[in-house]
């Protein structure tokens, strides 16, 4: 019995670790202000009655350039086996770069 439970845990872990993502992207711009993308995983509980607090995007320009929502097979299995009581989702986003217009080079003595 213990061996069967262990096997189930290993299989579940492998399934969670396997790629096989469903992704949905919202794009205002493909440009971004960094080489890194921000990531977070959030859980919603009890059919959505308990939801996570808003994620602070942390963008210096207070503007997101693109956002991707991801679910993988592990997330889907969690949702399935909890009958929708626990629903995880992955979120990735990039911040908009600073908006800089063309300026003349001006020095004090020019």
């Amino acid at each position: 019995m213990k061996k069967q439970i262990l096997n189930l845990i290993i299989v579940f872990g492998l399934l969670t670790a396997l790629p096989g993502c469903h992704t949905y992207s919202l794009v205002a711009s493909h440009d971004s202000d960094s080489i890194t993308t921000e990531k977070a995983t959030r859980y919603s509980f009890v059919g959505g009655l308990i939801k996570p607090k808003n994620i602070n995007a942390g963008c210096p320009q207070e503007s997101i350039s693109n956002l991707t929502v991801k679910t993988n097979i592990g997330h889907q299995l969690i949702t399935l086996f909890t009958f929708g009581m626990v629903v995880p989702v992955g979120i990735e986003w990039s911040c908009s770069p600073p908006e800089e217009n063309v300026e003349p080079i001006t020095l004090e003595n020019e």
């Binding site: 202000d33 890194t36 908006e99 063309v102 080079i105 020019e110």
Partner: peptide, 17 residues
């Protein structure tokens, strides 16, 4: 590494440049 992606200044040159 040194991340440079926020360096977006753009400047025009004057004749004396």
């Amino acid at each position: 590494i040194i991340d440079t992606k926020r360096l977006r200044l753009k400047m025009s040159l004057a004749a004396n440049h």
